[in-house]
Amino acid sequence: MTASATPAITTRGLVKRYGSRTALHGIDLDIARGNVFGVIGPNGAGKTTTMRLLLDIIRPSGGELRVLGESPRSGGAALRQRIGYLPGELHLATRARGRDFLAHYAEISGPVRLGVVDSLAERLGLELGRPVRSLSKGNKQKLGLVQAFMHEPELLVLDEPTSGLDPLVQQEFLTMLREAKERGQTVFLSSHVLSEIQQAADEVAVLRAGRIVQVSTVAQLRESAVRRVRVVVPEPSAALVADTLERLPGITGVRRVADRPRAAAFEAQLDAHVDTFVKAVGRHELIDLTIEEPELEQAVLGLYNGAGGER
């Protein structure tokens, strides 16, 4: 693995149009070597389009694109040998057995070290002796993962890699990602399974309708996530607490809800100001206090819905 200084992926104003429909409206991305970079977004956001551009399966309508320091167009076959790609919709209808299928791609994009295919297949629980087209969706997906990983490429481009995989295999896949990162490989993956991005990725781009809504680290994204909080206080201090909540920074949508007798319950959304919140309500007598763990999902849904992160 060459630990070169060139970034794994750079795009500037990357545009892709299909006739009158614009799939990507000028994407800027910088993905450093050795990073695991996740991209999330709803269907049709442009995730798959971006990945296909990296592999020269489709060509940009505008903007700049460098993959491992080269343009996918001029880099050609030699560049693609350095990339492992798992398509989002994997269609495999060949009669060839899994082993022969992989041997074919190993010939094209290899070399593949001896034993790598078997060890990957074993880890994922994939049987290589059966005809590819008779495999279940999950097993085809495993085969797709093996062909992407087997030649230990500098860059892995994985479109919805865990779709169709059962939870145990998903865990194994996450381990494979960590190992790839340790070896210095760069990973660019898309997912709608947010927990997967949360566990695997260093950085996340949120894509919506062909635009990047936000690029941040997972930690930052979690910080921008909103937590649901619930405060239960004795009835007499209700007015006081309500007043405190209204004044606090980072608290929105305070509403009083029915709870137990002679008590007042308030629910609200809280952003990153956890410390201020706890200290402020801590001055009152509390019956109960709940802060739910922020879901990345909520943060992302916030980005999908509104413009830029507020709800």
């Binding site: 399966i57 990339i83 209808a93």
Partner: peptide, 17 residues
């Protein structure tokens, strides 16, 4: 049309090949 070409083209071959 059945989507298999995408995977082959993404490997180390040129379209001409």
């Amino acid at each position: 049309e059945n989507g298999q070409l995408e995977l082959t083209i993404a490997h180390g071959v040129s379209r001409g090949q």
